[in-house]
Design a protein around this nucleic acid. Structure first.
Length: 429
DNA sequence: TCTGGGGTCCTAGGACCC
DNA sequence: TCTGGGGTCCTAGGACCC
């Protein structure tokens, strides 16, 4: 039996999550904004039809949204993450091997399904996900991941297909590959597209028929793999076990601008505390944090400053207190008192690369951190915040001031319907 | 006023080693 | 004139993804 991979994804996933809990949004244009209510990052078909582009700055489209009755939401990642887990639980009823590729996309191995049953199974999958979670989806089928991704793109953009496109079917394969522009392919961005166009490539079929060797010269091994995948030769296996995370970052734009050191330090400390939470969740640690902060490139004519500095720790840790100390040290050693016109910083963050499993990491001979005390303290902190909600217990340097006026804006955020008892939706019967 | 955040992979080139 | 020949490791930067 031939190999068959399905890629299933949620249509306008974040918007669909909002629609699940507010049926009045059906048929209306809906968008979800990025952190800080900055840009549109999810749009329903109705919103796209109004010309709202991916990544459009909200302040530029606000008036239009009001005039057209677009429903606008801040992002609610707690809700979307939980809805994502629910859809994946359904996928596991349909396939043993599932790769969770992103918050709204998963690959399923359907190789053991008979060819003539695949289309119907995909339709059944869509209907079940819709019934059990409320999320509308599309399914693409192909002999490789690249072709499954392409099939999914076709299923999404050609309404007549009913949400499923099967490129394991030779007729469909021949029909579509010469009709889709190469720029739609997974892995072809702006730079690669320009190179391919210069080589006379227009359709996906054009790329498939190219000699892989010169393509490798231009697009590296990534481009060569793509050609093989388009020909049906699998080069990208399903990643059934998520790879260990290699780096971790917490970075945020400020809701306004920050010019004073105390506020900057508080923000950086809060980011470091959040970084610690993320590392503890995965049992990872780091012995180096990069701290950065900078002014905005949009603030033309103002003094600009961009700072990035690495702070080393004596040994790997995920203790929030140690990370906060390191991060605020990064600010302290780079802080410059402003001149006549102060720098107005727009964003700050804390980044680590080279994460290691904490249990296996070597201990320091000098300056050893007190893991025996830190671990239970951090565990207690995490347990409190898990039980009473994030922010129930906060470390002093990371925002004792109740104002936290640097904090990210979420002015149109819906409740955490599925993960917070106090936010449960009310049903009247 | 207001322009997101967080990842991965690949390559070239330098440093360094024997 | 002529200036070895391989390796490995690390880093910065580019590209792409959701």
């Amino acid at each position: 039996m031939s190999r068959a991979i399905a890629l299933i994804d949620g249509n306008s996933f974040y918007c669909s999550c909002e629609r699940v809990f507010d049926p009045k949004l059906a048929g209306k244009p809906v968008i979800v904004l990025s952190n800080n209510d900055g840009c549109a990052i999810a749009r329903t078909a109705e919103a796209k039809a109004l010309g709202i582009k991916m990544g459009a700055p909200y302040f530029q489209i606000r008036d239009m949204c009001r005039a057209e009755g677009v429903r606008v939401f801040s992002s609610n990642y707690t809700l979307y993450g939980d809805m994502s887990a629910r859809t994946n639980a359904v996928y596991r009823d349909f396939a043993r091997d599932v790769e969770i590729y992103s918050i709204d996309e998963s690959f399923l191995d359907l190789s053991d399904v008979r060819e003539r049953d695949r289309f119907a199974l995909a339709q059944d999958l869509r209907a079940t996900v819709r019934a059990w979670t409320g999320i509308p989806t599309c399914v693409g089928l192909g002999p490789t991941k690249t072709l499954a991704k392409l099939a999914n793109h076709i299923a999404k953009t050609v309404p007549d297909l009913g949400g499923v496109c099967d490129l394991t079917d030779p007729v469909q394969y021949d029909h579509w590959l010469c009709r889709i522009h190469v720029g739609e392919l997974w892995g072809i961005g702006r730079a690669s597209l320009a190179k391919l166009e210069a080589m006379g490539v227009d359709s996906v079929a054009d790329l498939r028929d190219l000699d892989p060797r010169p393509v490798r010269k231009a697009l590296t091994v990534v481009g060569e793999r793509m050609i093989h995948e388009l020909r049906g030769l699998s080069c990208l296996p399903l990643e059934l076990v998520p790879a260990r995370r290699k780096g971790c970052a917490v970075t945020r734009s400020f809701s306004g601008r920050v010019s004073d050191r105390a506020t900057l330090e508080e923000a950086v400390a809060a980011h470091a505390a959040r970084l610690g939470e993320k590392l503890r969740r995965d049992g990872l640690g780091t012995d180096q944090v990069t701290v950065f902060y900078h002014t905005s490139e949009h603030d033309r004519g103002e003094p600009m400053r961009s700072v990035s500095t690495v702070v080393s720790l004596p040994e790997a840790t995920n203790d929030s207190l140690a990370l906060i100390k390191a991060a605020t040290h990064g600010v302290a050693k780079t802080w410059r008192e402003p001149g006549q016109v102060p720098w107005r910083y727009s964003k700050a963050g804390v980044i680590t690369i080279d994460l290691v499993p904490l249990a296996e990491s070597p201990r320091a001979l000098i300056g050893r951190l007190d893991r025996e005390r830190s671990a239970p303290l951090m565990a207690a902190l995490d347990a409190c915040n898990a039980r009473w909600g994030r922010g129930a217990v906060v470390l002093a340097r990371a925002g004792l001031s109740t104002k936290r006026d640097w904090n990210t804006k979420f002015e149109m955020r819906t409740p955490r319907y599925t993960t917070q008892v106090s936010d449960l939706p009310v049903a009247c019967a």
